[in-house]
Design a protein around this nucleic acid. Structure first.
Lengths: 209, 209, 209, 209
DNA sequence: TATGAATGAGTGTTCATTCAT
DNA sequence: TATGAATGAACACTCATTCAT
């Protein structure tokens, strides 16, 4: 599997020695943050895992905060890129929403650790770095909200959009606490199931009641 | 509001001086774990918040781990107690499932910090304490799963129970990341909405597809 | 020799266990700051010297900065106290200025390390702590400047007071770079010599030229 | 203003590319040592300030110690050179001592940062480098002491030469803690004032008392 | 000449925890 | 019941320095 962090279209882009090394480090860091949480993880853990010296790591990032920032930024950026690519193939509102769901699950079920880091360490980053991440997250949320709105208009449905969209995110994101590929099937299967519950749930709504 | 931790029916039961003090401490600890996470929180934070000395706190618990254990155990125990009480009033399967949802939300939206601690610090506890918490959690999960199964049989529905129940938990538990009483209404309102999406979603299912 | 830091009239006052220990620590810290400079000294050095554990030290102060602050504050406060006491015994302006000089030298030649720390780490402290120290220092300077002004008026002398007072401080404070009791005599001797150079120097001045 | 460090008569002499670059580096280093002290300053600070890479700097010096050595050696060497030049113009003992004072102040008030580094980091250097600097310093001290002795003999004065010379150095070197050109006038003015205090001070001495 | 990449040793500070009282 | 005093281990991070290129 190619490095998660070195895709030509992101800032980790150019496949220089530096970028490849950074991407290796970020992958290790993701795994460690997943396992122990941001606070519980130590740069020493990362040093052990990556084989670099403690001091050597700091050549690649400025602080533990920045490490988390780089990870989260990359994830939001690249899941969104893929989403945009995938959405090009469909015009039907329902299909488009199903694409959102399956894009999200395909991306994150392939990176279960990343998914956990993203939802767990949601509000850790303060200051400018945190603000940038929150902006990316809001953009991603709005992609989904817009698709739901599109569907709502087309089908003349009645429901509180905010609550409904957040329910959908709840179903999708909670998955990292239980997903087991052998029991639950692949990402497409889970996406179909969640899509079913969600779409039937909102199609049946004719009033707020 | 009576202390969350000193209800007659739990082990913190008897309203002794010890129990009342412990319950105060656990409330402070919950708030701190919520704000900073288990790893990020320090016993010194708790000392400051509670007004007790660092050493004095250890009269009430053996370790930081046990502190989290006491909190989580109490929460699962008491939400389950309330659930059992509330379920006594209804026999209709749908109504009973709606009671599960509203019981969960009423309990946890009144204790948003506790809800966050429960989902955030889900897998922190290792060893015997962790095992006990996981058992309680499984029991609670099965309460819900049984209600869904009951409904499925009655209404002759077709769906993968496991996936569907976990979707429901996802919708309910994700709520701590977005719930705002002024925007989203009270617990009963949110429970109705989540119930709607979920029940309509599964009612409409006639096959696994 | 009684501890430098536990005089009844200062804030290190009450001879409690805590205060005695703190005063021991501050004495060690003074010696270390003197030898290696503030930046060059490490809390580990202090741990070694004092026999307390690294962590144990932090029971007595909040930060390395505060350590320096405590030392400097104590020195300025107590040299000033002694000065006020000593000045009570004389009314003659020249005698009073000679008292300033001999008080300064008696105090600091008995604490050569303290003298070096005070002049070397003059501008290290930033923020509130630094401001407080600078205020104390300014007060001490003005004590001296007032005595010089008194003499200038009495004897109708002509000179730039600022330059002259700062010359006097220069002579007194530079001493830590060269003073050797066996070669240079005791504090009273040095004070007499500096007093001579200074007083004859300003008595002979009738114009700014 | 020509570089402080690349004068034909010093070892940084020949105006080669190397020497010009080294001289730039030493100027930056002086500023940084002045601002943060020797211990507090880091080679990284110097890298930032000079624009050279961390590793690149080491082409110009062997160690941080040598950096300080080069600075201090240059300062003593070149202030002494100028002194010798200036002393050629006068034969009268008093005039010659006044030349020492004004040469010292003219040189160092034009390089306030250098003056601070010289007095602050006086005893930092250990081993051979430190010994060499101490030798230069002693030579400079003796230049002054000889001039004072000359005057003492000529005018048949009585005082402890050592104490008196060190008083003079105290007045001159302490200046870096207070000198403000707008308030205190130029170097010549300050030199006259210090010369006045000092010369009148010793002229008036007819006994050690 | 100059740099990118790396390191071992050290920094100030905080941690959960203990023990005599 | 509760605390003051203390500790070993760990923390994030920076240091001066090096070496292949």
């Amino acid at each position: 599997m190619a490095s998660t962090y070195s895709m030509a279209s992101t800032s980790f882009g150019a496949n220089s020695r530096f970028d490849r090394q950074l991407s290796r480090i970020l992958n290790h860091a993701t795994a460690i943050f997943c396992e122990k949480g941001y606070e519980g993880a130590s740069i020493r853990d990362l040093s052990r895992a990556s084989g670099l010296s403690l001091a050597g790591l700091y050549y690649y990032f400025q602080s533990k905060d920045e490490l988390l920032y780089l990870i989260q930024k990359h994830l939001f950026t690249s899941v969104m890129e893929r989403l945009k690519e995938n959405l090009k193939t469909a015009a039907d509102p329902e299909k488009r929403l199903r694409i959102f769901i399956s894009n999200h699950l395909a991306y994150f079920l392939a990176r279960p650790k990343a998914m956990k880091v993203l939802s767990h360490e949601d509000d850790v980053l303060k200051g400018a770095l945190g603000a940038e991440i929150r902006t990316l997250k809001r953009q991603y949320y709005h992609c989904c909200a817009d698709l739901v709105e599109e569907l709502k208009l087309t089908k003349k449905l009645k429901f509180k959009s905010r609550a409904v969209v957040l329910c959908l995110f709840g179903m999708m994101n909670w998955i990292h606490t239980w997903y087991n590929p052998r029991v639950d099937g692949d990402a497409a299967t889970v996406a179909r199931e969640i899509g079913n519950v969600f779409l039937r749930g909102i199609y049946a709504s004719t009033s707020g009641r």
